[in-house]
Measured scan of single mutants.
Amino acid sequence: MAEIKEKICDYLFNVSDSSALNLAKNIGLTKARDINAVLIDMERQGDVYRQGTTPPIWHLTDK
């Protein structure tokens, strides 16, 4: 899980924002549900936040 978090942070640092599906595909996974639990956990920790569009767009925080 730590490896996936690191990949998410690296990708969002370079791209600035992404949907869960696009993010999953760009870090080597196939479906948004493969990454949603990790994104929600990271959101609780304050590492990422989502804009409430459908589907949500994920961003890194300034943390």
Rank of each mutant, 00 (worst) to 15 (best):
N36A: 04
Y11F: 12
H59Q: 10
I8S: 08
G46I: 00
R44L: 07
V48W: 02
D62T: 11
D10G: 04
E6M: 09
D62A: 13
N26T: 06
L60D: 07
I8V: 02
A24K: 03
K31I: 00
V38L: 09
S19T: 09
L21H: 12
L39F: 01
S16Y: 02
K31N: 14
S18K: 03
A24I: 03
M42N: 06
I57Q: 10
L29P: 07
G28C: 06
A20T: 08
A24S: 06
A20F: 08
S16R: 14
V48N: 08
R44C: 03
W58Q: 10
L29I: 12
F13I: 14
R50P: 03
Y49S: 14
K7I: 01
V38N: 10
L60F: 03
P56K: 04
K7S: 05
N14G: 09
N14R: 15
D34R: 02
K31T: 13
L12M: 01
A37S: 12
P55K: 04
R50V: 06
K5G: 03
A37K: 14
K25G: 04
A20V: 05
Y49L: 09
T54Q: 13
V38C: 14
K63M: 03
N22Y: 06
T30W: 07
I57M: 13
K7Y: 01
A24T: 08
M1E: 15
K5E: 02
G52P: 05
E43S: 01
V15R: 09
L21E: 15
L12S: 08
N26S: 11
T53A: 12
M42T: 02
W58T: 09
G52V: 02
N36L: 08
M42K: 08
P55F: 06
I35M: 04
A37Q: 11
Y49E: 15
A32I: 14
L21T: 14
L60A: 10
Q51A: 10
I4D: 11
A2M: 13
V48M: 01
Y11S: 09
L23T: 06
I35Q: 07
M1G: 09
N22R: 02
K31G: 12
Q51Y: 12
I57C: 03
W58S: 09
M42Q: 07
C9S: 12
I8L: 00
P55A: 09
T54A: 12
N14F: 06
P56I: 09
K63L: 03
W58M: 07
E43P: 01
A32F: 11
G46A: 01
V38S: 08
L29F: 11
K5L: 03
T61D: 08
G28H: 04
M1R: 14
L23E: 07
P56C: 04
V38G: 11
G28E: 10
N22P: 09
A2T: 10
R33P: 09
K31S: 15
V48E: 09
C9G: 06
S19P: 10
W58A: 06
N36C: 06
V48D: 07
Q51E: 14
I4R: 06
T30L: 08
E3G: 10
V38Q: 08
M42Y: 00
K7C: 00
N26K: 12
W58E: 09
N36K: 11
K25M: 08
T30E: 15
A24E: 05
K63D: 10
K63P: 07
K31R: 13
G46D: 04
Y49R: 13
I57Y: 01
I35L: 08
D34Q: 08
A37I: 02
T61Q: 04
S16N: 13
L21V: 12
Y11L: 06
D17M: 04
N14A: 12
T54G: 08
A2W: 10
A20H: 03
K31P: 13
Q51D: 15
I40M: 14
T54L: 05
G28R: 01
V15F: 13
S16E: 10
S18C: 08
K31Y: 14
E43H: 01
F13Q: 15
S16I: 04
L29S: 10
I40T: 12
T61A: 11
Y49G: 12
M1K: 14
M1V: 13
K25L: 06
F13H: 14
N22D: 13
V48T: 03
I40F: 10
K63H: 07
L39Y: 02
N22H: 11
R50M: 03
I35A: 08
I8F: 04
R44P: 04
H59F: 07
S18D: 05
E3H: 08
I57K: 11
A20C: 04
A24M: 06
W58V: 05
R50L: 02
T54H: 13
I57T: 12
A20L: 06
L39H: 05
N26W: 08
N26L: 06
I8E: 07
E43K: 01
I40W: 06
A2V: 09
K31C: 15
A2P: 07
D10Q: 13
G46K: 05
K5C: 00
A2L: 11
T54F: 06
A2I: 08
T54R: 10
I57S: 09
L23V: 08
E3Q: 07
L60M: 08
T30F: 09
S16D: 07
I8M: 06
L39I: 01
T30V: 10
R33K: 13
